[in-house]
Nucleic acid binder design. Structure first.
Lengths: 154, 154
DNA sequence: CGCTAAAATTAGCCATGCCTAATTTTATTA
DNA sequence: TAATAAAATTAGGCATGGCTAATTTTAGCG
């Protein structure tokens, strides 16, 4: 019995910073089985103290389970958000990779966009990527157009 | 004579909030010749006091000229940023409009993306938009693919 | 096992941007 | 022009998400 009205499914989003943390925690756990504060700090480019602080807030939000000095794991809710962001990240990366942009640009842009795009737009990008991947001629025309435009501006 | 090292051309970006203010100030000035605090507050969906506060900081940053109770105008630096953002906004809107998304989704996504995309990616989107606009068959396939995917997920 | 280095945490601080309530200035209009 | 309404500003506060310095806990090694 629930006494308070809650959405049937909790939201799959959090603030940008929180989403970035969850994404990295997920990545670390997938990769090496656990997520340490040092590594999170490293990957996110921020101080360890900031990570500890945020992890405590993520715990308070019910997005991770955290025990002092012991480590962090994702809750179901946290995992849902992490998976959603990871999926967005991969979709956007695959899409941007079509255009021959350099890796750092792709990474930065994906990092910027992944927290701000609706599911419908993401769907459009997925469809576009799939379709373009099988239309190399068109992709070639697009790439030329990009170059032409850049040249024109200097 | 300059005593302090400054970039030859000042950066064309500011924080997201600042960029949003500059964009709206620009829009209001273009539209009705002046930008009032009330209208900015209205358009940005925030309190008048917050607008006054931010305008004072934009003035301190050299992005607007502001005189108490008198009004705001953009400086050259502010105008450059406003123009850049407006251009991004329009480019992204034209691009997303290809896919039949509803207007609110487009607006929200553009608003989210316009502060986070590199010039190269924007260039790719421009080229893509131009090319797709003259390939209605392909656009049709993409739209079907979007629908198909959405259905599959429920 | 004890020592040391690494990792984690705490405490205290700061900038950004938002808010409300209260006040002041400007604009309108009777 | 005086009163009132609208607009703008100030004051004070709050959440988010960073930081550094100091401290505590854990881990690794002789």
């Amino acid at each position: 019995m629930r006494y308070i009205d809650m959405p049937a499914t909790p939201p799959l989003t959090a603030s940008r910073a929180r989403e970035d943390y969850l994404e990295q925690i997920h990545k670390l756990i997938e990769g090496k089985g656990y997520a340490r504060v040092v590594d999170l700090a490293q990957n996110l480019g921020i101080a360890q103290a900031s990570v500890t602080n945020m992890i405590q807030r993520l715990d308070a939000d019910g997005l991770v389970d955290y025990e002092k000095y012991r480590g962090v794991v994702l809750t179901e809710a946290g995992l849902d958000i992490a998976r959603a962001i990871t999926d967005r990240h991969e979709t956007l990366t695959r899409f941007l990779e079509l255009f021959g942009l350099d890796d750092e640009t792709i990474y930065d842009d994906v990092e910027g966009m992944e927290h701000h795009i609706s599911e419908s737009t993401l769907e459009a990008f997925r469809a576009l990527q799939e379709e373009l991947a099988r239309q190399p001629a068109m992709l070639g025309r697009i790439r030329s157009r990009m170059t032409a435009r850049s040249k024109k501006r200097g």
